[in-house]
């Protein structure tokens, strides 16, 4: 579907992008960032939905269903956990950053 070399370029640029984002991060943010990136690869949910959407035999459908379950758990759980971790970074200034949880 995607041209091989085009994909190679995307792989390379995305890898540099990820590397640069993390390059100068303070130690205090290591764990929340791990959790945040854990949420971002929850995009696997989209892939699992596509796989289940194309599954045909009952066995494929079963595996696809489990895949969507797991992917949804990754995305939702990753979000909740990261949000709870970052809540501890709430600024101590009064009135700043009132809860915008979604």
């Amino acid at each position: 579907m995607i041209d091989g070399f085009l994909a190679l370029y995307i792989f390379m640029l995305a890898a540099f992008c990820g590397y640069e984002i993390i390059a100068r991060v303070p130690v205090i943010l290591h764990t929340p960032l791990m959790s945040g990136s854990n949420f971002i690869h929850g995009i696997v949910l989209v892939g699992a939905m596509i796989a289940l959407g194309h599954a045909q035999t009952p066995f494929e459908i079963t595996i696809g269903f489990v895949g969507v379950l797991l992917g949804a758990g990754n995305a939702a759980g990753g979000y909740v956990v990261t949000e709870r971790m970052l809540e501890m970074f709430k600024s101590s200034k009064p009135g700043a950053g009132k809860g915008d949880r979604g």
Partner: peptide, 11 residues
């Protein structure tokens, strides 16, 4: 998926 996955992979 390609981009988000690879960003997380590198980061």
């Amino acid at each position: 998926m390609i981009i988000a996955g690879m960003v997380v992979g590198a980061a």
